[in-house]
Write a protein that binds this DNA or RNA. Sequence first.
DNA 1: TAGATTGTTAATCGATTAACAATC
DNA 2: TAGATTGTTAATCGATTAACAATC
Lengths: 269, 269
Amino acid sequence: MRRTPVGRQTRARGIPEATVARLPLYLRALTALSERSVPTVSSEELAAAAGVNSAKLRKDFSYLGSYGTRGVGYDVEYLVYQISRELGLTQDWPVVIVGIGNLGHALANYGGFASRGFRVAALLDADPNVVGSTAAGLPVRHMDELESIVASQHVSIGVITTPPGAAQQVCDRLVEAGVTSILNFAPTVLNVPDGVDVRKVDLSIELQILAFHEQRKSGEEPEEGPIEEPPVRERTPGPVRAAAAKLRRAAGGGKDTKGDSDRQAVLPA
Amino acid sequence: MRRTPVGRQTRARGIPEATVARLPLYLRALTALSERSVPTVSSEELAAAAGVNSAKLRKDFSYLGSYGTRGVGYDVEYLVYQISRELGLTQDWPVVIVGIGNLGHALANYGGFASRGFRVAALLDADPNVVGSTAAGLPVRHMDELESIVASQHVSIGVITTPPGAAQQVCDRLVEAGVTSILNFAPTVLNVPDGVDVRKVDLSIELQILAFHEQRKSGEEPEEGPIEEPPVRERTPGPVRAAAAKLRRAAGGGKDTKGDSDRQAVLPA
DNA sequence: TAGATTGTTAATCGATTAACAATC
DNA sequence: TAGATTGTTAATCGATTAACAATC
């Protein structure tokens, strides 16, 4: 049990999640400056390059320590190093990618992957037709090798690019093998034990969020729908029949007059 | 100028962003229930399926309207429809994908893309060697056709899967052509005029966030680094030389003893 | 009617932002 | 010293959560 002194800020590792999520952005902007041999940068300039406002950036950096110089700005190289260290990028992170379809292929070839401390330890697939082929110069190996690879190469990060149906099963196996961080590209909610981190990247969700805002731009705002009494709402439908009533309403009412089959077309495969 | 009445909740279209971002999750879970012909679901069950807590789910739904039945739950079909409508998925959204490398290919083939109202209107690339090939059954067309395609097919959503160097330029052209929502996979901060929405998906950022948490698990917490006085901090370095001093410190001090060249290996390409 | 479950309230927590004293 | 810019404070805003009255 660790003490959590309060006196003169022995801060108990309290970097807010929102800040952590922005550190890679700052790092990227700083790296670009570093490559142009820019020696120092102000919070204002760096914030602009990272696409945030400068107050937020300074607040974020204040969680890391006092790495700036008043009146001058931040030393680019020094900050690159400090943020890299904070993010754990000064060490090497072997990762396995499971599911070598289109997306797995793309990831294996992704440049920003190999750089920044991440190293593809292995590509894995369950399909015998895929096993043995190569992607990004690496052989695709069979899932059966998962456990031995994770153990021998000390893999703690796994990337799942399988079809949704296989994702939970693959996840279980990764966790069982000792992986404690998972990046999930399959459109599935993964259940993991405590102590395992999951982040997900969901292409279709991002598009849906864009569609929501786009809809509001074209003046089309469905304003009324949810606000005025929902379609033909009958009163007192009886205890359980209420649900059935809604079902009928869904099929018939509403402003959208498309039939059911049309509506199905909108739904996921 | 729209009035914003306050009386009995004619809610001025105030769905919080955090809620919008979760609607696709609910929709996915509901769709799965719908396929299994489950007629109704409680907030507790649906929340579990979507991976959120039930209080949050009920609060989220309350922004859409009162679509549930006390004592019973929610009608699955009805909710699917309401959420689809709210997200704008009852209409068709043609999208263009620009940059048909590995990732562009993967996206063109992505199933969850074609479903849910999104339709690939065109695949575009600037490379003559790529133009003319096909991906996911569609021909790759030249960037020069961008403007005419956007106009004729009423494309309002663009997906950028180009190398980082080309992203801003492609973005400008998309915006100029009339696209008002952009999903950016290139690791670049895009500048767009007001009224244009940008969302980004950044593979390497997700991994970096995982690495941060992973580092903290292995007991390795860099606890001290930023807390105890940063390495060998000299006092009063003189007005501008302070930065140079830090540079020296960065190269020499710290607990990580790797040399500069080693550190470079961690940085992006 | 009794049991179940929603929709809403209110408390809490975390994130953002402007402003400015500290200090290079 | 004067000008610039950080690091921090405090106010504000938005999101989460538990609890429970309303009501099926």
